[in-house]
Amino acid sequence: MLATQADRVMALGEWEGRWHENNIGFHQPHVHNLLESSIDKVLAGRTAVRFFFPLCGKAVDMKWLADMGHSVVGVEISEKAIEQFFEENNLTYSEEPVPSIPSAKVYKSSEKNISLYQCDLYSFSSSIEGQFGAIWDRGSLVAINPRDREKYASLIISLMAKDCRYLLDTFLYNPELYKGPPFFVPNEQVHSLFGNSCDIELLQSVDSLTDKQRGWGLDYMTENVHLITPKSE
């Protein structure tokens, strides 16, 4: 099943183009229901947790978490997405270059503990912002090019602090009927990517087929939420 999408490639420019054309059906104007229902598991009683958002777009989840007293660091290629995030949430921000990443910028909220890096995700590393206590991956692993998944997983693992709780959202459907994105990521692959160094728990599995996905030609779509935590040494 994985072979059908193995060679599918979305260039960074295509993602930027989607933002410029406002072709962003993946953006949700509300906090993701599976994040809301899993948040206690992610926090595990902790306060002031540092969250990482890979490919963050303008997710309203970031302000929701910051309003609770957590801090948020996101990475996003689209400058427009980042600017819209601050404008739509009525947050003032500053912009500054990132010395260690050529041509990258970081946008920092003045009111909330939110820093969004405008750069290629693979240019980011723990040397820039350290490691994180939580990661919310709502549309990142399912959006990257399938051939880059091992590179992606090693980056994410390198960003996980020892107490990190990584919430990963994936989709199951028949990839012969739809080329993606979002791409098909079977549970077996989640285990092959993260299972050597992490424990993986399937928290939720929900039917997420809507008329939109039927329009893609799909007859079923399952959304899975995994909680991934570093194995204790």
Rank of each mutant, 00 (worst) to 15 (best):
M1S: 14
D7L: 11
R8W: 05
A11S: 14
E16P: 01
E16R: 03
W19K: 00
N23A: 11
I24V: 15
G25Q: 11
G25I: 14
Q28V: 15
N33R: 15
L34Q: 12
L35E: 05
L35Q: 01
L35C: 06
S37F: 01
I39Y: 06
A44P: 02
R46P: 03
F52G: 02
L55P: 02
C56K: 04
A59C: 13
K63N: 11
G69N: 05
S71N: 09
V72D: 07
V75I: 11
E76G: 08
E76R: 05
K80R: 11
A81H: 09
E83C: 12
E87S: 12
N89C: 10
N89F: 06
T92P: 01
S94D: 15
P97A: 14
V98H: 12
I101Q: 07
I101G: 03
A104I: 10
K105M: 14
K105A: 02
Y107W: 11
S109I: 10
S110H: 07
S115R: 10
L116V: 04
C119E: 11
F124M: 15
E129V: 10
E129D: 15
Q131C: 06
F132V: 00
G133W: 06
W136S: 01
D137T: 00
D137E: 02
G139R: 08
S140Q: 02
L141R: 04
L141S: 06
V142C: 03
A143P: 02
R149D: 09
E150H: 05
I157P: 00
L159T: 06
L159G: 00
L167R: 00
L172Q: 12
N174G: 08
Y178H: 13
G180S: 05
V185Q: 09
P186K: 10
V190P: 09
H191L: 15
L193P: 03
F194Y: 15
G195N: 03
G195V: 05
N196M: 12
L202I: 08
S208N: 14
T210W: 06
D211S: 12
K212V: 13
Q213L: 09
R214S: 01
G215T: 09
Y220G: 02
V225D: 07
V225P: 00
T229D: 04
K231L: 10
